[in-house]
Design a protein around this nucleic acid. Structure first.
Length: 871
RNA sequence: GCCGGGAUGGCGGAACUGGUAGACGCACGGGACUCAAAAUCCCGCGCCUUCACGGGCGUGCGAGUUCGAUUCUCGCUCCCGGCACCA
């Protein structure tokens, strides 16, 4: 064989063979256990970034590993092809989003192929294709029929200069990103999906997702935000027949309510502002303000009295009614009762505006509420200053107060969710058209199934001023499906989260032109393993869980949860280097163009630009991005080192769930390892293999040294198997390196090599090639055949540790004196607890440390340590 | 602000259920090979102290539980992800 490792050659060769054999093609086969391994599909942004490489390498490692374990594996790929960046690219270059998108797909597909992923390309799909999105439209119509989709108004960011709706991302410090004009809020009609109808089920379902990361389940649970509380009605002082409804989880503090507050969007606020210009101005200012929750929550708390009052439902006392910017219209009733003594936000607000503060709970912190605020005031406790409720605890008080309110018809217990319905209307061109026709006679008319798909014209070029579909007469002008009269098509498109909420189902049957799903879905779904970025922990995953349940209730699928096991991968980061110009402008330099200077111990002392040798400032570490110029092009990596090195490095350098900090020298290390594997294989072929006799290992007695090597190999096989199970791939890669290190320790100078050594090496090489095959498929595939182990390494059995190889006669135990490690003792591996204690006590190390001191006790941890406690 | 996560040598990380902290790799230092360089191989490598044996300290910070804590509990600091129209 070739003495030099040439990844370019063997990778091209292996990929051609796999293509030829359709090696990754998945065919339904009820006789074999199926394994549906899915990585989140990419947005075709132009070229692959490191996050993609990481994601798809993890997926491919799992797919190939399960293939070797005998599963029928499906690993598909597609394109999340609708979205905003295509419109931005169109504006910048004058190219239609469709062309830009299809070009990107073609390029990225070839990149994915060069990385050697075992993807079944025959199932490829793109969400911007009518044959895909027609089923978005079809299901949307079913949801309309069932009342799961509905139309109401929603608030959007409006750029008054460009006359267009902006995404949150396009709003920078409250201004339009292109025009710089202050962004306004607008209420427009939009379609919503009733995810709240499934709130409880989505919450309950989390419990069954045992193989999801705990943190994701927690985040989803908090996002759904179920709270038990009481709906309380505060009658209007000016019209006690009507009442202001609020929701509270702290009905026990009702007697401490000193005012009520409304969101600016609350109808009562508008009513109160009618003849009060100052209030009207405040309400308007609030409405103009932030849309994003993060901004709303951090803004300064402001408010204004409405002049109206409400009556306390239990005492009848008049309480002032305020408008406050910290009350959210989207949660509960859009109004709150304020208890400044026991809620921090209310406290800050009351303090600022001189509203009364009345303590009604005795907490561990004390009875009254002096400023400043302490968190303890928000805790549950015993009621005080609450008349007949005094002395009750939290639950007792809530029950009693809710009962009294119910008797008066002024309240009831209720469950409230934080989750809101999903607004899917986007005033954008590059998305799936919403299949509705607006008829002057008949109103909003759903497009009949027979007329689906409503096809998006692919030749529009957006210019940033509104949705270009509005200017496409051939799209907009149509006839009403009901009355046949001229009518207008809806030009809003769907949120791209709709596209990604069910693509994993369509992979089972992408070619079915007649139905959204077919019987193949029953074979492949649910997804056994889903892999993607942690940033999708809530929205995408929750929408998919919701959409799956809708499809289930329509009889389309038979499972509740789409993803049985989830791996959330960390982000890929890199260093940031920059210089400040005289003008204060910052120029960023790519880490590839930077020299790191270190002292003689390897400590960094500075960084300089290669081009001019002058120093650069370090901006720390951050996600790879264009703006910080710290991206590493995976293509360059593959071109220089090959796909296997890129894959191995990705797996080795960090556990999959953690953020990964890029390092060029680390890549070198991975490449060096693969070269060593190659060199060792060449040496094996030339010098060892001729000495191997069949069944050698069973026939030769290994001396202690060889037995130790073999034990090391099998220990690492055991470790690698355990780590594969728990998906900690970095230590699988480590295990491969340790195996090679052990094998290299066997002397193998010809002709001295003995039968035992040859047998141990042969077994070790065979194990190593299989163990790293999922990570470095090209190398393993090539060497497996070249060394005569078999035709295809992926048809070979997955290596398992042999218990016999792990046994040893003696074990070394750590010897601790009073919890401090002082040495070690060797004992027979079957030594009793008493024998171990004795061996420890008589050991010279113990004698030295405990001489003359009485031994209190001896702790023995079998196989690990002995701790002699003396005092 | 709210929700979730993280922090271990110069660096990436390992330590499985509370049991030898630093596996494996990178960087760095020394050496071998070479006319030389690259590649490769060997040795060293947490910090302080010691000629050495050894000793002390050490897993973001401060407490606690335990024979024993990177691991468990409580209180902080800093960093990262999400917050509903980026995907």
């Amino acid at each position: 064989m070739q003495p030099q490792y040439r990844p370019a050659d063997i990778e091209k060769q292996a990929q051609a063979e796999w293509d030829e054999k359709r090696a990754a093609r998945a065919v339904e086969d009820p006789a074999r256990p199926k394994y549906y391994c899915l990585s989140m599909f990419p947005y075709p942004s132009g070229k692959l970034h490191m996050g993609h490489v990481r994601n798809y390498t993890i997926g491919d490692v799992l797919a190939r590993y399960h293939r070797m374990r005998g599963h029928n594996v499906l690993q598909p790929m597609g394109w999340d092809a609708f979205g905003l960046p295509a419109e931005n690219a169109a504006m910048a270059n004058g190219v239609p989003p469709a062309k830009w998108t299809y070009d990107n797909i073609a390029y990225m597909k070839q990149q994915l192929k060069s990385l050697g992923f075992a993807i079944d390309w025959e199932r490829e799909l793109a969400t911007c294709r009518p044959e895909y999105y027609r089923w978005n439209q079809w299901l949307f119509l079913r949801m309309l029929e069932k009342g799961l989709a509905y139309k109401t108004t929603g608030v959007v960011n409006w750029d008054p200069v460009d006359q267009t709706v902006l995404a949150n991302e396009q709003v920078i410090d409250g201004r339009g990103w292109r025009t710089g004009a202050p962004v306004e809020k607008r209420e427009i009609p939009m379609y919503y999906l009733k995810i709240t109808a499934y709130a409880d089920e989505l919450l309950q379902g989390l419990e069954a997702l045992a193989e999801w990361p705990e943190r994701v389940r927690l985040m989803q649970s908090n996002w759904i935000g179920r709270s038990e509380g009481v709906e309380v009605a505060f009658p209007y002082a000016h019209d006690p027949v009507q009442a202001l409804k609020v929701f509270t989880t702290r009905a026990d503090t009702l007697l401490g309510a000193t005012y009520c507050a409304l969101a600016a969007e609350h109808p009562l606020a508008a009513q109160a502002a009618r003849d009060k210009p100052e209030l009207a101005a405040f309400v308007e200012a609030c409405k103009r303000g932030a849309v994003m929750e993060a901004e709303l929550a951090t803004q300064e708390k402001k408010g204004m009295p409405t002049g109206l009052h409400v009556l306390h439902p239990l005492t009848g006392k008049k309480l002032p009614l305020w408008v406050a910017n910290y009350v959210l219209m989207g949660y509960g009733e859009g109004a709150v009762m304020a208890v400044p003594a026991h809620d921090q936000r209310d406290f800050e607000f009351a303090t600022r505006y001189g509203l009364p503060i009345k303590p009604v709970i005795r907490t561990s912190a004390g009875e009254t509420t002096p400023a400043p605020w302490r968190d303890a005031y928000a805790e549950h406790g015993t009621l005080i200053n609450s008349g007949k409720y005094d002395g009750l605890d939290f639950q007792g008080a809530v029950d009693a107060i809710a009962a009294d309110l119910a008797r008066k018809g002024l309240g009831r217990k209720r469950i409230q969710y934080r989750l809101r319905d999903w607004g899917i209307s986007r005033q954008r061109y590059w998305g799936c058209p919403i299949p509705i026709v607006h008829c002057p006679q008949c109103g909003d008319v759903p497009v009949p199934d027979a007329q689906l798909p409503v096809v998006l014209p692919e030749d529009c070029v957006p210019d940033g001023t509104g949705n270009p579909l509005n200017r496409r007469a051939d799209f907009v002008n149509t006839r009403c499906p009901k009355c046949g009269q001229p009518a207008r098509r809806e030009t809003d498109t769907m949120d791209t989260f709709v596209d990604s909420s069910w693509y994993y189902i369509r992979y089972a049957c992408p070619d079915n032109e007649r139905a959204m799903v077919d019987e193949r879905v029953r074979y492949w779904l649910p997804v056994d393993q889903y892999i993607g970025g942690i940033e999708h922990a809530i929205l995408h995953l929750l929408y998919s869980r919701f959409w799956t349940r809708v499809m289930r209730d329509l009889g389309l699928v038979r499972f509740d949860e789409p993803f049985s096991r989830l791996l959330t991968q960390g982000m890929v980061l890199n260093e940031i280097f920059f210089r400040k110009r005289g003008s204060g402008r910052i120029t960023y330099y790519n880490p590839a163009d930077v020299d790191i200077r270190t002292d003689e111990r390897g400590n960094r002392i500075g960084a300089a630009l290669k081009a001019d040798g002058l120093p650069l400032e370090s901006g720390g570490i951050g996600t790879m991005s264009k703006s910080k110029n710290n991206g590493v092009d995976p293509q360059a990596l593959v071109d220089q080192y090959g796909a296997d090195t890129a894959r191995f490095f990705m797996m080795f350098t960090s556990p999959p769930e953690q953020t990964l900090a890029w390092s060029d020298s680390g890549v070198e290390g991975s490449y060096r390892f693969l070269r060593r594997v190659w060199a060792f294989a060449a040496d094996y072929q030339g010098n060892v293999r001729p000495q191997v006799r069949s069944g050698a290992l069973a026939q030769v007695a290994l001396d202690a040294k060889l037995a130790a090597v073999r034990r090391e190999v099998h220990l690492n096989v055991k470790q690698a198997n355990y780590d594969m199970q728990r998906q900690q791939f970095n230590t699988v890669a480590s295990a491969c390196m340790k195996i090679l290190n052990a094998l290299e320790g066997v002397p193998r100078n010809p002709p001295a090599i003995g039968a035992g050594a040859a047998a141990v090496i042969e077994e070790g090489v065979s194990i190593l090639l299989r163990l790293q095959a999922p990570i470095t498929p090209h190398l393993s595939h090539h060497l497996w055949r070249e060394l005569g182990f078999g035709e295809d390494v992926f048809d070979a059995p997955w290596p398992e540790a042999e218990e016999g190889a792990l046994e040893q006669k003696e074990v070394e135990l750590v010897l601790q004196i009073n919890g401090k490690t002082r040495g070690s003792i060797r004992v027979p591996s079957d030594a009793t607890r008493e024998a171990i204690e004795q061996a420890a006590l008589v050991s010279p190390v113990a004698q030295k440390h405990i001489a003359g001191i009485p031994v209190k006790k001896v702790v023995v941890v079998p196989g690990r340590l002995v701790n002699v406690v003396a005092q």
